[in-house]
Amino acid sequence: MNRQGKVRLVKWFNQYSDEEKYRLNLDIYRLISSREYKQHSNFVEFQNSKLVYKRYAGLFFIAGIDLDDDELIHLSTIHLFVEILDLYFENVCELDVVFNFYKAYAILDEMFAAGEIQETSKTAILDRIRQINAME
């Protein structure tokens, strides 16, 4: 999600209707964008869950986690995802994600499944993405 609240990449691991998705996006944006980077932590409770988020340049990376989940590790996960995007797109920027959204999804799917982290090795993930890219 960028600073204007435009969604660039989103994956839902629970089922929501389109209307709910829209509402959630809006509510999350309002909450996150109201929090000053210097005065607030990267965690905030949201409805019956917690949001862990971090801003990299113009993009917010946000993960919704359970209330009893560990916040810091998810913050590290976000960072890992950004590092991988950065390696793959070589100095990633918002536009890379915009134009190659489906590649970003492919990376997301190599890193997560069922809302859990599946792989943390950058090498393993990038090798696999290159392999996919080589296919027709």
């Binding site: 560990d70 810091l72 590790i73 913050l75 590290s76 960072h79």
Partner: peptide, 8 residues
């Protein structure tokens, strides 16, 4: 990033 991970 490293500090977060090591605190985690």
């Amino acid at each position: 990033a490293i500090k977060n991970a090591s605190n985690a």
